[in-house]
């Protein structure tokens, strides 16, 4: 009886020692959680989540202060990836948050008065132009956040949906599987 207890205790100690050693030896140096969350967010910096940018939203998620379904540009796919990262259930986008087709801002160069308000509003410095000069948006760098729309005093900025063309066209998911009988 005693020997059995001793054997069991010995095995337990040995296993514990191995586990302890392994946890030290094979420790994974992780990116901080915020960085990982931020890497999933689309970096539009649009603030639709209610935070002033993607990083603050990531920080809020990491602290558990914000839900994962507040990012419309990330879409359902983004929510899913956040859910996988955090080990929680994916859920639909929050109330009133609808993903929009990808669009970029375009300035009507004839109306622009060169007030630089939009330049200051742009979170990614995608608008160039100095005071009293017309401004232009670098299409490649526009994230489509729409933050430049409200400050414009002459409403010369509009959002243009990115159209599908030969260059960005994608192969569709093949429709082939047998349909269930109605």
């Amino acid at each position: 009886m005693i020997s059995a207890i001793l054997v069991m205790a010995g095995i337990g100690l040995a296993l514990g020692a191995i586990l302890g050693w392994a946890s030290v030896r094979y420790r994974v140096e992780d990116d901080p959680l915020v960085e990982k969350i931020d890497a999933i967010l689309p970096q539009t910096q649009c603030g639709q989540c209610g935070f002033p940018g993607c990083k603050p939203y990531a920080e809020a998620i990491a602290k558990g202060e914000a839900d994962i379904n507040k990012c419309p540009p990330g879409g359902a796919d983004g929510v899913k990836r956040l859910a996988e990262l955090l080990g929680v259930e994916a859920k639909p986008l929050g109330e009133g948050l609808e993903p929009k087709p990808k669009a970029i801002a375009v300035i009507d160069e004839n109306t622009c008065i060169g007030c630089t308000l939009c330049v200051q509003a742009c979170p990614v410095d995608a608008i160039i132009g100095a005071a009293k000069q017309m401004h232009t948006i670098i299409a490649d760098q526009c994230t489509g956040c729409e933050l430049c729309l409200p400050p414009c005093p002459v409403d010369c900025i509009s959002m243009e949906v990115v159209k599908e063309d030969v260059a960005n066209w994608k192969w569709r998911y093949p429709v082939h599987m047998m349909k269930r009988e109605a």
């Binding site: 931020d38 967010l41 689309p42 970096q43 539009t44 910096q45 940018g53 993607c54 990083k55 979170p123 990614v124 410095d125 995608a126 760098q141 994230t143 960005n168 066209w169 994608k170 192969w171 569709r172 998911y173 093949p174």
Partner: peptide, 23 residues
């Protein structure tokens, strides 16, 4: 289909990284 999805994702990732840096 899978290839063009992966290409698009890589492009999006690249765009997001650039946007983050610029921001």
């Amino acid at each position: 289909f899978a290839k063009s999805e992966i290409w698009e994702r890589e492009q999006e990732k690249h765009g997001a990284d650039q946007a983050r840096q610029r921001h």
